[in-house]
Write a protein that binds this DNA or RNA. Structure first.
Lengths: 336, 336
DNA sequence: CTGAAAGCGCTAACAG
DNA sequence: CTGTTAGCGCTTTCAG
């Protein structure tokens, strides 16, 4: 019988089966930006965890645009995925997600904390990780630490952050990391100078430009903390091209690890996220919901890890003794 | 009526529709390795082209493993995708793909040329691009050019390549690029020394190790051509750590561009692939097939582009005259 | 031109 | 325990 089936080129139509059972053994994954290595890595965690439980994963990419996300959710919904892992777009309405879970299709958020929807969420403890990173900079002796971030909405970064701080926890990973920066500064009794905090659209060139501007300050910062991959690339580029001696005169700490971090000179120190685990954990949570877990929504915070390499060193001393080292020796000075 | 529908939380069940029409307005994309920026980029091209024609894309990842690919194809098949773009695993049986297209679900191959299945294929003209790259190295004056590649099957690289050369066109991108290397050497009347050609499993550390070995040769090569992203990272690392002065004494040309290529010192010269176009072109071909194009299978070759940066310079001259430039001036030489 | 009915390929429930 | 039947929610066709 089965031989005949194979001979005739039979192929199961899982659509028909799904129509009657209402289940597809498939979960959806919507990445915020599939070109970001973070999501590619997280995806692996999702796929591995899902397959282990006998589920397939179908993937979509929102590109950070709410209408793409809505389209993806609609498609997945119509195709009757049994659950959804999503790195949601924070801006804009998200009733498309609420509707899904209302209808019994569990949703878990990854990487980004969507307030106002009762869904499990798993992400890196961004404020804590950022605070730890900036504390590390402070421990190394830095006092003027600049912040380079991208895509924080609003005109005034500091004002935006103050607003966000009153409404914890949550917000975008970028905002959370900025908050961590502020918190480390405050804990150390250091002032949060708005001139040292810059926000740019998420392109390498724009970040490089604002970093350059930062370096032109007098006195310039002695360290830069960049809150994501693009910000780090742009900042690295700017430091490398600047007249300052990087890393001796200016340190850099990035958020998110990358393959090239150990290829550049100096090797980049970073705060690494457990991307794979984030994906796997989110999926395990989803699987639990799909098999009937009715506990209240959970917020799962995984820890970032500080990876010390060579781009962070103590700042040059500002004592007169040290000054001599860079200034020409007195005997050679030309008098005016 | 529609208001009531929305009120009751109605959601279309596209499964039911697909059951009767047999069409899903969805195409599948199976990446070979979604963590490879090349595929992430190509995916964008696929998605854009598909959406333009009103199709959704569902994505899967084979991880280069045939059984994963088979599973993905089975799922897509059962879910009745209307077409499939795939970067296929070359080894192992591929009747799962043949069966699909036999049944009227068009398949187009991306990046990798699968002989033995009558499907459209779109990829970079790897042998030509590699040949152009190595010719560029030769034009710069290099004569001892090493080849660093990964994951070519078989024990003896040169033998494997000779075998592949008799059976053109096709094979894996790696093999094609090696063939391009050989072809450039031959055209210039340069010998193809098997000692200068190394193959490693696709990990950064292994590549770094074989590159180091290459650098230990006497005389060492004056240039290295690496055939993919991982090979390039490993080779770059090895060159940087070697006692040779990189790039003055040893040049590096990589295949595949990357964001970090302009961040490292020296900036990496590469052959860039039109990844986005590859994806978009493949999808346009697929769309044409889906709307009834019955022309014989096409092989579409897009061109790679040489991007000159700083990692390729002329080799140090071996003539006595040039030697003087690096040797201490005669008057200062200590006679012994 | 509008409305009812057939049926896509399965699964689950139920009768023999 | 095996075999038959109802029906999932749509689209398409055909009759009114």
């Amino acid at each position: 019988v089965e031989a005949a089936a194979k001979r005739l080129g039979y192929r199961r139509n899982s659509l028909a089966g799904s129509m009657v059972t209402g289940r597809t053994q498939t979960i959806g994954f919507i990445a915020y930006d599939i070109e970001d290595p973070f999501f590619a890595r997280a995806l692996r965690g999702v796929v591995d965890a899902a397959r282990q439980a006998g589920f397939e994963v179908v993937i979509a990419n929102s590109d950070g645009r709410i209408e793409m996300e809505q389209a993806a959710v609609r498609v997945f919904d119509e195709k009757r995925v049994d659950g959804l892992v999503i790195a949601p777009v924070l801006e804009g309405p998200h009733d498309h997600l609420a509707r899904l879970s209302t209808r019994g299709v569990p949703v878990v958020c990854l990487d980004r904390d969507l307030r106002g929807i009762a869904a499990d969420t798993v992400l890196t403890d961004n404020v804590r990780a950022a605070r730890a990173g900036v504390e590390y900079l402070i421990r190394k002796g830095h006092r003027r630490i600049a912040l380079v971030t991208t895509d924080v909405p609003g005109e005034d970064l500091l004002a935006e952050l103050s607003r966000a701080a009153l409404d914890p926890p949550g917000e975008s990973p970028m905002v959370a990391r900025c908050l961590g920066y502020l918190s480390a500064l405050r804990a150390a009794g250091l002032p949060a100078a708005s001139s040292l905090m810059r926000n740019a659209p998420e392109t390498r060139a724009e970040v490089a430009a604002i970093t350059e501007a930062l370096l032109g300050l007098v006195p310039p910062p002695t360290a830069v903390f960049s809150t994501n991959d693009v910000a780090t690339i742009g900042a690295y580029e700017a430091l490398q091209c600047s007249s300052l001696d990087f890393p001796r005169e200016i340190s850099l700490l990035g958020f998110d690890d990358a393959e090239w971090a150990t290829l550049v000179q100096p090797k980049l120190s970073v705060i690494a996220q457990p991307a794979y685990d984030l994906g796997a954990t989110a999926t395990r949570r989803l699987l639990a919901r799909m098999s009937g877990d009715l506990a209240p929504p959970q917020l799962l915070l995984l820890e970032g890890k500080l990876v010390e390499r060579d781009s962070v060193v103590p700042p040059p001393s500002e004592s007169p003794g040290a000054e001599k080292l860079t200034a020409p020796a007195p005997g050679l000075r030309i008098r005016g």
